[in-house]
Nucleic acid binder design. Structure first.
Lengths: 193, 193
DNA sequence: CGCGACGTTGATTTGCCTCAACGATTGTGG
DNA sequence: CCACAATCGTTGAGGCAAATCAACGTCGCG
């Protein structure tokens, strides 16, 4: 079953009973999106968190000049959402888009709350994920402040080996904060070393 | 009492009984640091969260070239810690330093856990803080990707009006990710507008 | 007083961007 | 199933934002 992947992810942090697993399964729904499909657009309210089963999702915003800036890339086993909108219930600034054909599990915010109330271990699971996400984001800020684009790319490759070769490099450039042109030159330079 | 400030911060999110407040108070200790004092150094394990009563704290790391990079600035009513080290129990990369004479409340990780067990509302309080911190950090990443230094400075001023004029601008430059020299020119340019 | 931290200003350099042109690949509709 | 458009990656030339290096004035403080 597709939901097994989610159960495995949860099992890494907390242990659920069979009934709890069943209740969880009853609250998530499976969906498949084609490449380029938008799961969320700017100014929408993000009601769902998405757990990627297969494929890749990207969250980004678009600045005044129309340039995309990638906040996160999520592949198999990762959650993605517009956390600001999801938590505050207000319209957000992020788009969430399928980079390739992608299958996800959707969890509605209200259902997540039900799960929290009924199964405190689920609450703990998401708490750990949020903590890890905070730590990763702080590290990314420090990297942005202290490393060159080249060093950031090397860290990205080390940290996300699965993503590195699967997404068009235009998106990695956008994640790192450089233009596709510069990223192309940079990569070639690294190869000759 | 100094701890009133913390109780007020908590009261914004959850309601504690008198006994719960008393228990909380028994677990935090007050400390005062002189300007330039280090509360935490690189490679140390961060055992405490610090709640600023009066003064300003700064968390930063130092890169290979010896340059400081500011992760956060915390003034009255804010918490600060090396979240990675605090949560993982491993040595961290951050320094925490008093920018001016500063009075804080210290909360040991073990005591925080005691509070979580005894008072679920405290758990909820910190959870909200962590969520807000995650959102703020994600916004900062997006700002770093999509805005010029000038625009980032304007947002910083809007978001942290209390800090803006209180800390040496060398630290704001470091927070924004520019050199003190460039920050100086930038500020002058903004004044002439 | 004198030292150290901070801020400013100037000259020069550089990392990265912009604009433009051009293959290669892909997928999609006719 | 092919033709065409769209997307992606690469390369070149030129430009700009921000860094670097250096010098100097100011202030607070031991």
């Amino acid at each position: 079953m597709l939901v097994d992947l989610l159960l495995k992810s949860i099992a890494k942090h907390v242990v659920l009973t069979e009934e709890e697993q069943a209740f969880l399964c009853s609250k998530v729904s499976q969906k498949t999106y084609k490449a380029k499909a938008l799961l969320l657009e700017e100014n929408e309210i993000c009601h769902h968190s998405f757990f990627v089963i297969e494929g890749i999702l990207q969250s980004y915003n678009i600045d005044e000049q129309g340039v995309k800036h990638t906040l996160s890339l999520a592949t198999t086993g990762w959650w993605i959402a517009d956390m600001y909108s999801f938590l505050s219930g207000k319209p957000g600034q992020l788009y969430i888009e399928a980079i390739e054909n992608t299958t996800v599990l959707c969890l509605h915010k209200d259902d997540q709350q039900l799960l929290f109330d009924r199964i405190p271990k689920i609450d703990r699971y998401f708490r750990i994920l949020i903590e890890n996400s905070l730590i990763a984001n702080q590290q990314r800020i420090i990297d942005n402040l202290s490393l060159t684009a080249e060093e950031r790319y090397e860290r990205f490759c080390a940290k996300h080996p699965t993503i590195k070769d699967k997404v068009p490099q235009i998106h990695i450039a956008s994640y790192l904060g450089v233009t596709p042109e510069f990223f192309s030159r940079m990569k070639r330079k690294l190869l000759t070393k």
